[in-house]
Computed example of a mutant assay.
Amino acid sequence: MKKLIIATRGSKLALWQSEHVKAELEKAHPHLAVELSIMMTKGDKILDTPLAKIGGKGLFTKELEEAMLRGEAHIAVHSLKDVPMEFPEGLKLGVITKREDVRDAMLSEKYGCLEDLPQGAVVGTTSLRRRMQLLKLRPDFVIKNLRGNVNTRIRKLKEGEFDAIILASAGIKRLGLQEEVRYFTPISKEVMIPASGQAALGIEIVDNAEVERLVSVLKDEDAMIETRVERDFVTLLEGGCQVPIGVNAEVTQESLHVKAILGLPDGSQMMCEVMSGKREEFETLGKVLAQKVIDKGAKELLARAEKIALSEIF
């Protein structure tokens, strides 16, 4: 293969991610030409409605996948946390890259951390997972929906629409936007458990051995192990972005530790579980943890959460 085409969205973060993968592939394969094919997805067009109400994160991948299936592109680079658990026939998750900082972060023009926010502070996020954990910590917070790309969200903060907004640390760091606001404060995983796959890039590919060989140079073993656990947990719970689920796995030498949280969007009822195992148990650990919370009524709790989210929040 002499040329490889990457299907990508046109947002600054999507372009950074695709350009990063392009550079790494060209460095590993000097005789390979890599091009970007930029397109707009349904998720980019609908900016006034929360994702959970209009179909979830798959809205950011469908058009890219259709281009790949038509033979117009070979791969697509996604934030792994936005990648659906199932893939269309003919496509697959080819590789998972090394993770950036997995934590969420608080951005504010006035306040240095969550504890400094005043009573009734307005906090921007459209994530049910973040909403749940914020309201568990501070039931007085007023949570307002926040859509748009990273730069748009920061602009809304600077215009005074919010006292603080919550975004993934990884995206801010990749775009070098830490200095765009007065306070950029990563939130401890003890306070807010991240989303499945957060801070890793997932490279979706056409099911082709040559394409898979080319992208294999970007594979990170630890990231693959951690995100496999996280994605297995969410898959068994049948949880999309319509329900609040946080799950984070961490490899430390030969051990594997995972922490998960799920519950109602207002933080009034939650389950939090932790589990540890050996590194080589990564293929089963997420499933075992999921079954543990299912046995305690997790699916029933998430069904209530989805009903509340769609009828009361969105």
Rank of each mutant, 00 (worst) to 15 (best):
F314H: 10
S311D: 12
L167P: 01
V77F: 05
I193H: 06
E281D: 15
I166Y: 10
V251S: 07
E280V: 09
G267N: 05
I6E: 04
V217S: 07
S311L: 07
V274Y: 12
L285N: 08
G263I: 03
F233A: 03
I143V: 15
L107K: 04
G246L: 01
T126G: 14
M224V: 05
A168S: 15
P118W: 06
G176Q: 11
E63S: 07
S196F: 00
E115T: 02
E19P: 04
G56Q: 07
M1H: 10
G246I: 02
R9F: 05
Q242G: 11
G197D: 03
E180M: 10
K53P: 00
I187W: 07
M85R: 07
G56R: 01
E72P: 03
T49H: 13
L80R: 01
F60K: 00
V122L: 12
G277A: 12
S79L: 10
G55W: 04
E230I: 01
P30K: 08
S11D: 14
K92E: 13
E65C: 07
G246D: 02
A298P: 01
V293I: 08
L236D: 12
E250V: 13
T185W: 06
K42S: 14
E300H: 11
E190T: 06
R147L: 15
K296C: 08
M132W: 04
H78K: 02
D48S: 12
V215C: 04
V142W: 07
L167G: 02
P88G: 03
A164D: 09
E204F: 00
I5M: 01
S169E: 05
M68K: 05
N145P: 04
L285Y: 14
L301N: 05
Q291C: 09
K12M: 11
A23G: 13
A305E: 01
K144H: 14
E250S: 13
I6A: 04
H20D: 14
R182T: 12
V142T: 11
E109Q: 14
K92F: 10
K27A: 15
R155Y: 07
V34R: 03
P139C: 09
V122H: 10
L302Y: 08
A209H: 02
G297D: 08
K57C: 08
A195D: 09
L301Y: 08
R304H: 00
